[in-house]
Computed example of a mutant assay.
Amino acid sequence: MASPTTTAAPVPDLAVLQRRAAERAAARAGGEDRLRGHIVCDGLVRIFKTEGVEVVALQGLDLVVDRGELLAIVGASGSGKSTVLNILSGLDVPTAGIARVADFDLLTMSPKRRLRYRRHTVGFVWQQTARNLLPYLTARENVELPMRLARGLRGRAARKRATELLEMVGVGYCADRRPDQMSGGEQQRCAVAVAVANDPEVLFADEPTGELDEATAADVFGALRTINAELGVTIVVVTHDHAVSSQVRRTVAIRDGRTASEVRRSTRLGADGAEELVTEEYALLDRSGRMQLPAAFVDALSLRDRVRLNLEPDHVEVRPGGTGNGERS
């Protein structure tokens, strides 16, 4: 079920950045054959128990993210998107299913291996700017700290690398400033530099632009795109910001604890020879053949309870069903 739409291409650089990210990711992985399936979720379940009440946050979620990809996950509050991020970053443990990042099985990992995973394999950016930086350290010192903990890098080498990362995300001028001397956008871009200071394979960002205005949010997301392209780091961003989600090649929507739909963006040459951005939306099919229709489609046709399916040679028709007594609804 694809509904392609074509718009003028204000983002030809998106394809360039994507190609560059794939090249850097291949170099990190040691070859093209290791690019696929950097993050894999299969039938992922997470159940929370509070005072005898069970809440099912994830109901068999499936997701595959390729190495070097920049992916946005969107969904309404309570859909399960932050739960997914917490599991993949090692902050939470799934109840059942498969969750794998790189060579780490997040379901069976020991506490010691989980600590190593969080220290060396992943980076994290929180929505709240105050959670990302230590207030009594300068921006450069904040970036140097995870280098010491994860890589043992100190002195002049650590200082040089910290300066490079701050310049890469566009805030090299903040190197000697403490967080209270920076704006919210500057703090978040510094946080991106801190998150990749341990040279992680994957970077997770939970609503990194949630507390920022539109212009400042664009700067922060630009920093994420630069890190993705220049370092080949796989990046997964959870966001409500449609402006952010529209700047990535792939957006996955989660609904009721399952992946529901996916938007893919690609470029092609138009009739005039110029590049056009093509957007296609898909419903996701699980191994049992189940899918979720987009809420807008359900509302537009007032679909309720059951639908009629007709198999055609090259597609499946979905029509409003009967009322149960043979009459049309």
Rank of each mutant, 00 (worst) to 15 (best):
M1T: 11
S3L: 04
T6F: 05
A8S: 10
A8M: 02
A9K: 06
P12F: 01
P12G: 12
P12S: 07
D13S: 08
D13H: 04
A22T: 10
R24I: 09
R24K: 13
A29T: 07
D33N: 10
L35S: 12
I39N: 04
V40W: 09
C41G: 07
D42H: 13
D42I: 03
L44W: 07
L44Y: 01
R46H: 14
A57G: 13
A57K: 05
L58N: 08
G60C: 06
L61K: 00
L61H: 00
V64F: 03
V65H: 01
A76S: 14
S79C: 06
G80Q: 03
G80A: 05
S82C: 06
S82N: 04
S82E: 11
L85R: 00
N86D: 15
N86I: 01
L88K: 00
S89I: 00
D92Q: 03
V93T: 15
V93P: 01
G97Q: 11
I98L: 09
I98P: 00
A99Q: 10
A102Q: 12
L107E: 08
T108W: 04
T108L: 06
T108V: 02
S110L: 02
R119G: 12
H120D: 15
V122F: 03
F124D: 00
V125M: 01
W126R: 00
W126A: 14
Q128G: 11
T129E: 07
R131E: 15
P135D: 00
P135I: 04
P135M: 03
A139F: 04
E141C: 04
N142W: 10
M147V: 07
L153H: 03
R154S: 14
G155K: 03
R156V: 09
A158V: 06
R159E: 14
R161C: 08
R161S: 10
A162F: 05
M168T: 11
M168Q: 11
V171M: 08
R177N: 13
R178L: 08
P179M: 01
D180A: 05
Q181P: 04
Q181C: 05
S183F: 01
Q187R: 10
Q188L: 05
A191M: 03
V192C: 00
V196T: 08
N198Q: 10
D199A: 03
E201V: 02
V202L: 01
D206E: 02
L212G: 14
T216R: 07
A218G: 12
L224S: 08
I227R: 04
N228I: 05
L231N: 11
T239A: 08
D241R: 02
D241I: 02
A243Q: 07
S245R: 02
Q247A: 09
A253L: 06
I254E: 12
D256P: 12
A260L: 01
A260K: 07
R264Y: 06
R264W: 06
L269D: 15
A274I: 04
A274F: 04
T279F: 05
E280T: 14
E281D: 13
L285Y: 09
D286N: 13
R287G: 15
G289D: 14
R290K: 10
M291H: 13
L293S: 12
A296I: 03
A296F: 03
F297T: 15
L301P: 10
L301W: 14
L301Q: 14
S302P: 07
S302Y: 05
L303A: 11
L303Q: 13
R304D: 15
R306D: 15
L309Y: 13
L311W: 15
H315D: 11
V316N: 10
G322W: 06
G324W: 08
G324T: 06
G326S: 09
R328P: 13
S329W: 10
